[in-house]
Amino acid sequence: MNNLPKLQIALDDQMLSEAIKTMQLVYKEIDIIEIGTILCCSEGMSTVKNLKAMYPDKIILADIKIADAGEILSKMVFDAGADWTTVICCAPIDTVKAALKEAKKRNKDIQIELTGSWTFEQAKQWKEVGVEQVVYHRGRDAQAAGQTWDVHDLNNIERLINMGFKVSVTGGITVKDLKLFKDMAINIFIAGRSIRDSKDPLEAAKEFKTAIKKYWG
């Protein structure tokens, strides 16, 4: 069904070879391949080129969290074959506009990565300049400190959806977490370690897809 949330895998490996091993196992269950910030920094744009060549039918997201030089950096990832890229929420609005303009010229897209501090006043600005996608992110360090999904998160996500954004949800997401969001029109669930580090990554991906169909089918 078209209204089912998509499943995105976050490849936050430090080596392309490790990312490829995971993808060879799970690609049939994955809608979007995220080349994570860690992998982009470690292996560079060759990672984007290689994974797009290997999986041309998948959406490739280069998660570089643009903070400045929006036109230059977005050109870089799009030239390498990325379909989407991310702009960090603290980036100036002119950076957002520059990255979005470059994306639209190529029939590609950007996402605003909501990592760290941001406001709904900023969200209003993003909407006004034409941003369609945001990523609600519970950070890796916050997870390590024991932060869990709570009413504050759910209310924020619902408010973003009501503003008209397509919302991706990420941050240590597990299959058990999905039911927390079952009454929301989530666009994408992003899973990384819960699939990559599983004893059986393919089965883990299938479990996500089964749960998504259960709650949104």
Score class of each variant (00 low, 15 high):
Lys176Arg: 12
Asp200Gln: 07
Arg140Glu: 14
Thr85Asp: 01
Phe120Asp: 07
Leu25Cys: 10
His137Asp: 12
Leu7Ile: 09
Pro201Ala: 03
Thr119Pro: 10
Gly36Thr: 07
Asn3Lys: 14
Gly172Lys: 10
Leu39Asp: 08
Ile30Leu: 03
Pro5Leu: 02
Thr115Met: 10
Glu71Ser: 14
Gln143Cys: 10
Arg159Phe: 06
Glu128Gln: 15
Ala191Gln: 05
Cys40His: 08
Leu73Cys: 07
Lys209Leu: 03
Ile188Ala: 01
Gly171Ser: 11
Asn155Gln: 14
Ile186Thr: 04
Met1Leu: 09
Asp63Phe: 04
Val151Asn: 14
Ile212Ser: 03
Asn155Asp: 15
Lys105Leu: 13
Ala80Cys: 11
Glu102Ala: 03
Leu7Tyr: 03
Ala69Thr: 14
Ala123Leu: 07
Pro92Ile: 02
Leu114Asn: 09
Ile64Gly: 13
Lys104Met: 06
Lys124Cys: 00
Lys49Ile: 13
Ile157Met: 10
Lys97Cys: 00
Lys179Trp: 00
Thr174Ser: 14
Met54Tyr: 08
Ser46Ala: 13
Ala98Met: 08
Trp84Gln: 02
Ile30His: 02
Lys124Arg: 12
Ser17Phe: 03
Asp197Leu: 11
Gln111Ile: 09
Leu61Lys: 11
Ala205Phe: 01
Gly36Asp: 08
Glu34Ser: 06
Ala185Tyr: 01
Glu132Thr: 11
Ile32Arg: 05
Ala103His: 06
Ala82Gly: 06
Val169Gln: 11
His152Tyr: 13
Thr47Gln: 10
Val169Ser: 09
Ala204Cys: 04
Thr95Pro: 00
Thr170Trp: 02
Gly172Glu: 10
Lys52Leu: 14
Met45Ile: 15
Met54Glu: 13
Ile161Asp: 10
Leu25Ile: 08
Val134Thr: 06
Lys65Leu: 07
Gln143Asp: 11
His137Tyr: 08
Ala191Arg: 05
Ile190Gly: 01
Glu132Trp: 02
Cys89Gln: 01
Glu71Pro: 00
Thr210Ile: 12
Lys104Trp: 01
Lys105Asp: 08
Gly172Asp: 10
Thr210Pro: 00
Ser46Cys: 09
Asn156Cys: 15
Lys58Asp: 09
Lys182Phe: 00
Leu16Ser: 11
Asp68Tyr: 12
Gln111Arg: 06
Asn50Asp: 13
Arg159Lys: 15
Ile20Phe: 03
Gly164Asp: 11
His152Gln: 13
Thr86Tyr: 03
Gly146Gln: 12
Ala205Glu: 02
Asp13His: 15
Asn107Lys: 12
Met15Pro: 00
Met76His: 06
Asp200Gly: 00
His152Gly: 05
Ala91Leu: 02
Lys101Gly: 00
Trp126Asp: 06
Val167Leu: 04
Ala145Ile: 07
Leu154Glu: 12
Asn107Val: 00
Ile110Val: 12
Lys105Ile: 04
Leu51Val: 15
Cys90Ala: 06
Ile32Asp: 04
Met23Glu: 06
Pro5Trp: 01
Asn156Arg: 14
Asn155Thr: 13
Gly36His: 08
Ile112Arg: 01
Lys6Ala: 01
Ile9Cys: 02
Leu51Ser: 08
Glu158Trp: 04
Leu25Ser: 12
Ile161Phe: 11
Ile38Val: 15
Ala211Val: 04
Glu18Pro: 00
Glu203Ser: 08
Leu180Ala: 11
Val134Glu: 03
Asp94Ala: 05
Asp197Thr: 08
Lys213Val: 09
Ser17Ala: 13
Ala91Lys: 02
Leu4Cys: 05
Thr210Val: 10
Gln125Glu: 15
Ser17Glu: 15
Leu11Val: 04
